[in-house]
């Protein structure tokens, strides 16, 4: 129904091509994420979908309709901005009701729908407040309610959580996902935070410099990176070129190799290791950081620096800087790029 088909989409600003020949399809009801470093063109692509930026070439189809050249007012697309963009002269209720007022619905109906949506985002008691008296998270939820209340066919979210502190962000993430599932709303979410993308999405398109590098469900994107860039961007992959790989394993390699930090193990005497694992390799601890449930080590093994994540389980197993240990690498989890 409300699937999206983007084909050959191209956008140039006078001196710079932001992206060219983008092809994507987004399923009806899918939570689709555009992930990529700053400046790669995510916002521009999103604004093209919304009709706020004119495209130079290509087509966008929403459901049965070609919306490439349709005015934003006529697209039935809701959008939440990073800056919230709440109307400062209106109360929360009036902000949310704005779109319905424009549609000239009758007052009773407007009140009903606004009340319902405010209850959905848990803001009922703030209805008469003005935006300036709300916290960042509350403002973002007002913005969400305001774009949902008009029942759009597609919802666009441009880094809606990046201005919030970590705890609120986690909570809002879950709330957005829950609402999206409940309404079965086709959603395009933009972020530069890979953790956010991994936890929320049905599918992620990883972008860099105006190109879609890889477009896959989160698990696949994380476990099977198809390129250097994906491997480096998703998590703390150790990406070794052919020379480094040869140095590390003392056997010859072609092309580069991606090793996830959690697929490197510290050798323990009383454990059996099957043929998935590499030979023991001697390593020295260079530094370590405590990240809560895991400890991240930087090790030097055969002159190659490796990042290794170990579960933070026993205090006595914290290795000090300079300690010598043996590591094993799970070869089945390695990716040849």
């Amino acid at each position: 129904m409300n699937s999206v088909a983007i084909s050959h989409l191209t956008k140039r600003f006078t001196e710079k091509t932001v992206f060219s020949d983008i092809n994507l399809t987004i399923q009806d009801g899918e939570f689709f994420t555009l992930l990529g470093p700053s400046g790669c063109g995510k916002s521009t692509l999103l604004r093209c979908l919304a009709g706020l930026t004119q495209v130079d070439n290509g087509t966008i189809q929403l459901g049965e309709r070609d919306i490439t050249h349709l005015a934003p007012q006529k697209r039935d697309i809701g959008m939440v901005f990073q800056s919230y963009a709440l109307f400062p002269n209106l109360t929360v209720r009036e902000n949310v009701a704005f779109g319905l007022r424009i549609q000239k619905l009758d007052t009773k109906q407007i009140k009903q729908r606004v009340d319902d949506i405010l209850a959905l985002v848990e803001l009922g008691e703030f209805a008469e407040r003005y935006p300036h008296s709300l916290s960042g998270g509350q403002r973002q939820r007002v913005a969400l309610a305001r774009s949902l209340v008009v029942r759009p066919k597609m919802l666009l979210l441009d880094e809606p959580l990046s201005a919030l502190d970590a705890r609120i962000r986690k909570h809002l993430r879950q709330q957005i996902c829950a609402i999206q599932r409940e309404l079965k709303l086709t959603t395009v979410f933009v972020t530069h935070d890979q953790e956010e993308a991994l936890t929320m999405s049905d599918r992620i398109a990883l972008m860099n410099e105006g190109k879609i590098i890889q477009c896959d469900p989160p698990e696949k994107l994380y476990i099977e990176p198809s390129s250097d860039f994906t491997a480096r961007f998703m998590g703390q992959y150790n990406v070794l070129d052919a020379d480094q790989a040869q140095q590390l394993f003392k056997e010859s390699y072609q092309g580069s190799l991606a090793i996830r930090p959690e697929s490197i193990y510290v050798f323990e005497d009383n454990r059996q290791y099957d043929e998935r694992f590499s030979e023991k390799i001697a390593a020295t601890v260079k530094s370590h950081q405590l990240l809560g449930s895991i400890i991240r080590y930087q090790l030097i093994a055969n002159n190659v620096e490796l990042t290794v994540d170990l579960l933070n389980r026993h205090a006595e197993r914290l290795f000090d800087v300079g300690s010598e240990l043996s590591i094993l690498i799970d070869k089945s989890a390695m990716r040849h790029l």
């Binding site: 706020l52 809701g78 109307f87 549609q103 305001r146």
Partner: peptide, 16 residues
């Protein structure tokens, strides 16, 4: 005022 975002938000909500 954040004029550009306000105008964009209003237009997406159907306002001219």
């Amino acid at each position: 005022l954040n004029v550009h975002d306000l105008m964009d938000a209003a237009r997406l909500l159907g306002a001219s």
